[in-house]
């Protein structure tokens, strides 16, 4: 964390090597974050390029009151949301993922549980999926999620609760036995 803050200071002074180092440290997480929204490699790369260009151009605006990665996620999120609004078909892509018949998943081994939740997560709305992504992929705390999404801490908790309820609903609609994992 200290290194990232130091890199930002060097970027402000125009150090391109510092940008390369910051990219090495953070790019994988940022890439996954963007990809989980857009589900398209080319578009993810375009947004990545713009995100790090913005990091370079606006490094002096980083206040240091959060992790650098949280700040970069904020930039990436804004750019991604703008892109989604432009394309406007992302929601359809996310909701039109494979349909599953009820009663299909009565027996659940550990492997199947993993698969079921994987499929159910893909059916969540962007709003709910995003918050779970930040916790389970990017290992963000609620405070960090609050900063990235620009919402109060209590709203983060509420949104996690509703994401969980929605996920349960999706799993039930998929015919998953309630006792399997809740």
């Amino acid at each position: 964390m200290y290194e990232e803050n130091k890199l930002i200071k060097q970027i402000v002074e125009g150090d391109e090597e510092a940008l390369r180092r910051l990219y090495e440290i953070t790019s994988r997480s940022v890439y996954l974050y963007i990809f989980s929204f857009v589900n398209n490699k080319e578009l993810t790369e375009d947004i990545m390029i713009e995100t790090y260009t913005q990091v370079w151009l606006s490094a002096k605006r980083f206040k240091g009151d959060s992790r650098v990665l949280t700040w970069i996620f904020g930039i990436a999120r804004n750019l991604t949301m703008n892109e989604i609004k432009k394309r406007d078909n992302m929601h359809n892509e996310l909701t039109n993922i494979e349909q599953y018949q009820a009663e299909q998943f009565r027996l659940t081994s550990e492997k199947e549980t993993e698969q079921l939740i994987y499929l159910a997560l893909k059916k969540l709305s962007i709003k709910h999926r995003e918050i779970l992504d930040l916790i389970f992929i990017h290992e963000m705390t609620y405070e960090e999620v609050s900063k990235i999404l620009n919402i109060p801490l209590n709203t983060v908790k509420t949104r996690v609760f509703y994401a969980k309820e929605k996920l349960r609903e999706i799993l039930e609609n998929m015919g998953v036995n309630k006792d399997a994992f809740f």
């Binding site: 550990e110 698969q115 992504d133 969980k164």
Partner: peptide
């Protein structure tokens, strides 16, 4: 339930493409 979600995400992470 949350452990199940974690397992689901582990699978999702495996499926993510490399930059």
């Amino acid at each position: 339930f949350w452990n199940g979600v974690k397992a689901g995400y582990d699978k999702i992470k495996k499926d993510f493409p490399e930059p």
